[in-house]
Amino acid sequence: MKCRRVEKLIPLYVERDLESGIADRISSHLDWCGRCNWLADEYRESQSWLRSSAAPEFDAAALNAFKAGVLSRIAETSAKPSLIANLLQHLNRRQVLALSTAVLVVLGMVVLYVYQMRAKLGGPTPQIVESSPGIESGPAGIDEKPIQANSDKRRDSPKRRVYRGIRNSRTALARRRAAQTDGRDRATVARASLPTLNSNGFSATPAMLRIEIQTSDPNIRIIWFAPKETDSHQIKPATD
């Protein structure tokens, strides 16, 4: 063992805080190394010096006063019951039971209310809007599929949300570019193709039936076109 390592371990060695194997190796090192041996002696003296400070002594009167102080503080603490304990003192068993039931009912209602609110706010349920869409259906070549609420709920992981955001922004950009290159006035197109919607979000043009659904994500709007004559069960998304 080298002196450097021994020097680090000597503070523990002098008080037998080391495992026997390491302590034996240090002992054999100290047998031949005068410098480390001297250091070990120094540490032993230092430890003796530290221990020379005996524990403070306390006389009986001081200890009695201390004990009285502790007991009086304990009495003070136990004399001051908590608010709940104070309340319970004035109520009998039945009242306590009724009170706790009422508290449980109120808590349950609060939990239900919070749960419902969260379901309302957090759910990506698509909703049908009556506002004018502003953007026409995407140009050919851009694949836009209607978003299903249930599958979204299941797969609404943070990674997926980020991916969807990127996809939506790309789609919107592509739409804008397409509209610019077409040279069409989007507002005109919207006006031409979209008369006022009825309360169900359905609008009727002479040729087509248009259904517009706004999802909770403002970037996603689902627009379906269907021939007016077809039955409502056979409505299919427009591919054009």
Partner: peptide, 17 residues
């Protein structure tokens, strides 16, 4: 604990020195 004790003993020795 051993590390703390070792460091403490070293500091006390230094102070005493």
């Amino acid at each position: 604990v051993r590390t703390q004790i070792s460091s403490a003993r070293a500091k006390i020795k230094q102070y005493r020195d």
